[in-house]
Design a protein around this nucleic acid. Structure first.
Length: 957
RNA sequence: GCCCGGGUGGUGGAAUAGGUAGACACGCAGGACUUAAAAUCCUGUGGGCAGUAAUGUCCGUGCGGGUUCAAUUCCCGCCCCGGGUACCA
């Protein structure tokens, strides 16, 4: 009987589907394990061979856990909202729902062919109203919540209102947009509209005027992580800064918890580091600098700066404001106004991109001065775009000696600054021995100098202190003398949550007669996405939903009605924006736990059983997007009591990318002749990408090549050894490089089991590596060899004879190796171990059930189809997925290992072979009692014997 | 610039609480079977030197130092490659 993979795979895939083999239910008392893949966006191009890498790994792990007795939740779904479907819809008029459904069907067919053990009964699609209902629900909850720094969690806004009623903002510690201050009486005096505006400053989902990344080409705003180098991640269109009123999520409120939570989860160090950088915690101080009396603001004004280096306060020689800073208008003197206005205009003209490409030092003097907080000397206030409005207070104290950016600025404007400082040099070093003639000294180390002496007016003496001590002392001084406060800043910004798009979740929001946003009642959810005639933004600049006729809210009848009926008493306009891509992916892992629940996102029982994801596999590209937002989202739900775990993903693995291995042919210039790789240096050639599907083991199929394109029909070839050898390079897998390998083709030719094993064999899971079809034969050969172990002369020939010692040794070494390797996610070495084991068994001619049956079980996570078939041929009813993983018994694998007694001075070296299983003491005495060792050790008394079983013996004399 | 990874045969990669470097596979070479091819199987395969040979011997994990009886593994200094991030005060 031959290994007929096509037949076997078809048969077992149908069997699994029919018997719902991988359907799971919560089962109290049975240990659970939740294995999750990052669900795919179903693009029009279908899957290439790189996509399933992580799915194969998670599937192997799931099947392994199942065999070990765990109740494994391993679901799959689709991140179905997204820009490509909408762009396609704009171009073709095809409804995104239609193309998305077609793409999903195609993905499903491709996934099924690989033989994954997903529980498809739990499938989730983000564009399904039954699903996005809970996305809208969470949004309403966020709108109705604020973040208390007192309790370090989200609380209902009703509690905030109660606090305002009794004590105003007195003693309030809550996350907010800007610090407000009013009394209980002040709150009482506010109009309803003012109260709503005030609350908006605290809500976790809020409408705010924010500087957004506006992409005109896409007609929408983008989140920070959707912008790369000043252009949009998708499409690469230019992005500009613009103030717009947008829905935002107060992710920044959770900055500290998002940061500290990283300490308790098992994620790759590099990914945690990326998130730490993104959150960007910096501890420092805000310092208030009073305006100099002569300045335009008159007496009483002040400017607040943020610094992480308060110790350098005596090196401050000027101040800089961001161009967009709110301080600017008040501080510009009439004389400087024209110069400042010209500067602001020039800054506005420069796009983000230009600012990055050309980092010129620019700036303008505001005309005003502030007073140094300690020495009371006047300091000039400048305006420059190297200070960012969005970070800290948008104003800095410049210390040119110890900050490279301030240094560059001081050098650029040295003449002006010197004049303003009465001839003094603006660069004042504060650390002993540092040289600031060429560059600033930014390091936080050394001893302080140049601070005032003991007994000076201000009383802050830093001389002689280490930088760290000086920072602490200055912070304490600032607080004690009311010059400012200790402050922690985060780089993490709130997430902008509005998109001017059609293909996304609608907001459950309408605007009342006052124009204030109101949430729809929860019973009205889901608010379904309406039909529109076209998917472009409306001519008025409104988002595409502005084209929907049926898009107003009747607040009395509680239903969606036609826009035409808006009467401003009971029927109101609905929000026209939709939610961004990350909305739907922020809680999908919770929905899988209880996907058909109509009462809740997830029931308490289901959530308490499945809890959180035990293993999450996906790419690093989501480090600062999805993986931050979903942690935030989950923490919020945790605060409201909707879920029982604070962190959603306990362990995370980043699978590497599979790159393409492009093939090249070399055309001799001005001809239609192509020269083989090793002969190309003799000619002037142009390399051309050639479709990798026409190349095998780097040899070009010249007939296929001629048939590929009309212009190659008459191509000539200069061959070497009768073959045309192609050149190759590792590039991103993409259509334009003709290096896309479709998993369907591989499955067709070699079978799914070979594809699964080969993808694992290619190298470590975390590593990026090029796809190289060349090596796949080796894996396929292994499977055929393995199949043949069961057959002799065309029939099944498995004997019931007891297994011998040598066979059991091979088997148990395999069990041990494969089990520990899977537990460490080292799938490539597991596959190698199988190959070795099967080679050895073939060598022994072993066809014994006692060996082959357990071997089939441990191999089944990797090659489920062939193992199922053999399992059934061995006489088992049911699926191998219900089998039990064999137990490793060490006694079968006892073997001799080396022990190395140790010589000294490099004079004596010897090696000794000892049986395994001896105790440390036994090894030590065996070594020391050995003739050679005894001779060497004669006259020296061992002080200490260090033994590592099976490995080393160290003797210290 | 800063922060993470990583440099091992012709190729993908094994082996790190320091202990026989190159498992496994590809490729290549030779052989068996075959009229032939494919498929399959067997053998060899880091480099140099010596030997008819079994074998012996030296050199070898990016480069230069160090620690150690012993370093791919630990320490110091470089070089190169990949990823993240970037006026965040």
């Amino acid at each position: 009987m031959e290994y007929n993979f096509a037949e076997i795979e078809k048969k077992w895939q149908a069997w699994w589907a029919e018997h719902q083999t991988f359907r799971v239910r919560a089962a109290a008392g049975r240990p659970k394990f939740y294995v999750l893949d990052m669900f795919p966006y179903p693009s029009g191009a279908g899957l290439h061979v790189g996509h399933p890498l992580g799915y194969i790994a998670s599937d192997i792990y799931s099947r392994f856990r199942r065999l070990r007795g765990f109740n494994v939740l391993h679901p799959m779904g689709y991140d179905a909202y997204g820009l490509p479907a909408e762009q396609y819809a704009i171009q073709t008029g095809q409804h995104p729902e239609v193309t998305t459904a077609a793409n999903i069907a195609r993905y499903r067919r491709q996934l099924d062919k690989i033989g994954f053990s997903f529980d498809w009964s739990r499938e989730v699609k983000t564009c399904d109203p039954a699903y996005y209902r809970w996305t809208q629900w969470a949004f309403i909850r966020m709108f109705n919540s604020f973040y208390s720094y007192e309790q370090n969690r989200a609380l209902p806004v009703s509690e905030l209102v109660r606090a305002f009623e009794t004590s105003g903002t007195e003693g309030l510690r809550a996350a907010c947009g800007k610090e407000l201050s009013f009394s209980a009486a002040g709150w009482q005096a506010m109009s309803e509209k003012d109260r709503q505006e005030t609350l908006m400053n605290y809500r976790l989902a809020y409408l705010g005027d924010t500087m957004v990344n506006w992409c005109a080409a896409l007609g929408t705003v983008l989140a920070n992580d959707e912008v790369v180098n000043g252009v949009s991640l998708r499409g690469g269109y230019p992005v500009e800064q613009k103030v717009m009123r947008q829905w935002c999520l107060r992710v920044s409120a959770y900055a500290e918890r998002l940061l500290s939570g990283l300490d308790v989860i098992d994620w790759p160090a590099s990914l945690k580091e990326t998130q730490r950088n993104w959150i960007g915690k910096s501890e420092g101080a805000e310092i208030r600098l009073p305006l100099a009396p002569s300045s335009s603001g008159g007496g009483g004004g002040e400017v607040v700066v943020f610094t992480t280096r308060p110790d350098t306060v005596f090196g401050v020689t000027f101040m800089v404001l961001a161009p967009e800073s709110a301080y600017v208008p008040a501080l510009v003197t009439p004389g400087q106004r024209p110069a400042v206005e010209a500067y602001l205009a020039s800054v506005k003209r420069r796009t983000e991109r230009e600012r990055m490409a050309d980092r010129k030092v620019t700036g303008v003097f505001s005309g005003s001065h502030v007073l140094h907080p300690l020495t009371r000397e006047p300091l000039p206030v400048w305006i420059s775009d190297y200070v960012l409005a969005g970070y800290g207070t948008g104003a800095i104290m410049a210390v040119p000696a110890h900050d490279s950016r301030d240094y560059a600025f001081a050098k650029q404007f040295e003449t002006e600054l010197r004049a303003q400082l009465g001839g003094k040099c603006p660069i004042v070093p504060l650390i002993e021995g540092c040289d600031v003639s060429e560059e600033s000294f930014d390091a936080k180390e050394g001893k302080m100098i140049n601070s005032p002496q003991e007994g000076c007016v201000c009383g802050l003496v830093l001389n002689g202190l280490e930088v760290k001590e000086a920072i602490a002392k200055t912070k304490a001084y600032i607080e004690a003398n009311n010059l400012g406060r200790v402050q922690v800043n985060y780089r993490l910004r709130d997430a902008i949550f509005s998109r001017q798009r059609y293909w996304g979740e609608p907001f459950p929001v309408y605007y009342d007669a006052e124009g204030m946003p109101q949430m729809l009642p929860e019973e009205a959810l889901p608010l379904e996405l309406p039909e529109v005639d076209r998917f472009l933004p409306a001519g008025t600049g409104e988002p595409p939903l502005g084209r929907a006729g049926r898009w107003a809210w009747d607040s009395v009848r509680k239903e969606v009605v036609a826009t035409a009926r808006i009467d401003n008493k009971t029927v109101f306009p609905l929000e026209l924006n939709t939610m961004p891509g990350f909305a739907g992916s922020s809680a999908y892992f919770l929905r899988y736990m209880d996907p058909h629940n109509e009462k809740a996102l997830v029931s308490r029982e289901a959530n308490e059983y499945w809890r959180s994801v035990d293993l999450y596999i996906g790419g690093t590209e989501h480090a600062t997007g999805h993986l931050i937002y979903s942690r935030f989202w989950n923490k919020f739900l945790f605060d409201t009591g909707a879920v029982c775990e604070d962190e959603p993903f306990r362990k995370l693995i980043n699978q590497g990318m599979i790159q393409g291995r492009s093939s090249f042919v070399y055309r001799i210039q001005n001809s239609n002749t192509f020269v083989s790789l090793n002969l190309k240096d003799r000619y002037e050639v142009t390399p051309l990408h050639v479709d990798v599907n026409m190349v095998e083991n780097d040899v070009l199929d010249t007939d296929k090549f001629r048939a590929w394109r009309p212009e190659f029909a008459g191509a000539g070839f200069i061959l070497e050894d009768g073959k045309y050898i192609c050149g190759w390079a590792v590039e991103k897998m993409s259509k334009s490089m003709y290096n896309v390998v479709n998993p369907d083709d591989i499955v067709e030719k070699y079978g799914a089991d070979t594809l699964r094993m080969y993808e694992m064999f290619l190298g470590p899971l975390e590593q990026s590596k090029p796809w190289d079809t060349n090596g796949i034969d080796g894996v396929h050969r292994f499977l055929r060899k393995y199949w043949r172990l069961f057959f002799e002369g065309g029939r099944l020939a498995v004997s019931d004879a007891p297994a011998g010692a040598a066979e059991l040794k091979i088997l148990h070494r395999l069990i041990n190796k494969v089990q520990t390797d899977i537990e460490h996610f080292s799938f490539n070495t597991s596959v190698s171990a199988f190959m070795t084991g099967v080679n050895e068994l073939t060598g022994l001619g072993c066809r014994k059930r006692a060996v082959l049956e357990p071997l089939t079980v441990i191999l089944s996570p990797f090659c489920p189809h062939v193992c199922e078939e053999l399992w059934s041929l061995l006489g088992h009813a049911g699926s191998i997925a219900d089998a039990t993983y064999p137990v490793y018994e060490e006694r079968y694998t006892v073997e001799e290992r080396f022990a190395y007694p140790v010589s000294f001075n490099g004079k004596v070296r010897f090696r000794k072979t000892l049986p395994l299983g001896l105790s440390r003491e036994e090894i030590a005495s065996a070594v020391l009692g050995d003739g050679q060792s005894a001779k060497y050790l004669e006259g020296r008394k061992p002080e200490k014997v260090i033994v590592v079983p099976g490995k080393i013996v160290n003797v210290v004399v």
